[in-house]
C-alpha cells in the first residue's frame, strides 16, 4: 500500500513537472478592447460580444502514459487547470489600451472616420478580413475623389497596423499582433452599421 501511494505520488510529481503553462491570448479582453476602440472611432455603442470562447491554448498537459490511473490524474489536473484558466479568463483584467500612442491613433482614426463615413454608406469601401479597409467599388466614387479616398485608406490602414502593433506591445506581447489584428477584423465587421460592406475572405457582403 505504501508502495502504491509512493508510486502515485511519484507519478503525480512527474506529471506536474511535465505540465506546460501557456500564456493564453486573452480573446475576450481583446474583443472588449476592440469594441471600445471601434465604438470610439465610429461613434457607436459596442456590438454584442461573440459567443463564449473556447480556450485557445492547447498543451496544458503531457499525457505521457496511457495507464488508467495516470490518465485519470492528467484529466483531473487538466480540468482543474482549465477551470482555473476559465475563471482567470472570465475575470481577466482589461487589456491595456490607454497608452498615449493608442489614444493618438484612435483620435486620428476618429477624425478620419468622419471623412470615410459617406464612402462606407455608399458601399464604395468596406472592411476586409484582415482588419483593414479597402475599396469595394471605385466606380461609385467620383473621379475627383478617387485619389483622395485612396490617400485616406492608405492613412487609415497605416493607423490600423500601428494600432494592432501598439496594443500588442503595450500589453507586453508583441507576438499577439496577428491575433489582435484578427480579433479586430471580426469586431470591425460586427460593429459595422447596417448597409456597410465587409469582405470576410469569401467576397464582399453587405451587412
Amino acid at each position: 500500500m505504501q508502495h502504491l501511494a509512493l508510486k502515485l505520488a511519484l507519478a503525480t510529481a512527474i506529471l506536474a513537472a511535465c505540465v506546460t503553462i501557456n500564456v493564453y491570448f486573452p480573446a475576450a479582453a481583446v474583443e472588449k478592447a476592440a469594441d471600445q476602440i471601434i465604438g470610439d472611432v465610429i461613434g457607436k455603442p459596442a456590438a454584442a460580444p461573440l459567443a463564449p470562447h473556447a480556450p485557445t491554448g492547447k498543451n496544458l498537459h503531457d499525457p505521457g502514459s496511457n495507464s488508467l490511473p495516470a490518465r485519470v490524474i492528467v484529466l483531473t489536473i487538466d480540468r482543474m487547470l482549465n477551470t482555473l484558466m476559465s475563471n482567470a479568463d472570465a475575470a481577466a483584467p482589461d487589456l491595456e489600451i490607454s497608452t498615449p500612442t493608442v489614444r493618438q491613433i484612435t483620435e486620428s482614426m476618429k477624425s478620419r472616420h468622419a471623412q470615410l463615413t459617406q464612402y462606407y454608406d455608399s458601399g464604395a469601401i468596406g472592411y476586409t478580413a484582415d482588419g483593414m479597409v479597402d475599396i469595394r467599388d471605385a466606380n461609385s466614387i467620383t473621379l475627383a475623389e478617387r485619389n483622395v479616398v485612396r490617400t485616406l485608406l492608405a492613412d487609415e490602414n497605416k493607423d490600423r497596423a500601428a494600432l494592432y502593433a501598439e496594443i500588442a506591445r503595450a500589453n507586453g506581447h508583441p507576438e499577439w499582433g496577428a491575433d489582435i489584428k484578427a480579433t479586430f477584423a471580426k469586431r470591425w465587421i460586427a460593429n459595422a452599421k447596417g448597409g456597410w460592406y465587409y469582405n470576410d475572405g469569401s467576397g464582399w457582403k453587405q451587412k
Binding site: R146, N147, R150, T151, A154
Partner: peptide, 11 residues
Amino acid sequence: PQQTRAGLLLG
C-alpha cells in the same frame, strides 16, 4: 488642383 496633387503624392 488638390485632387490632382493627392494622386501624384499618394504613398
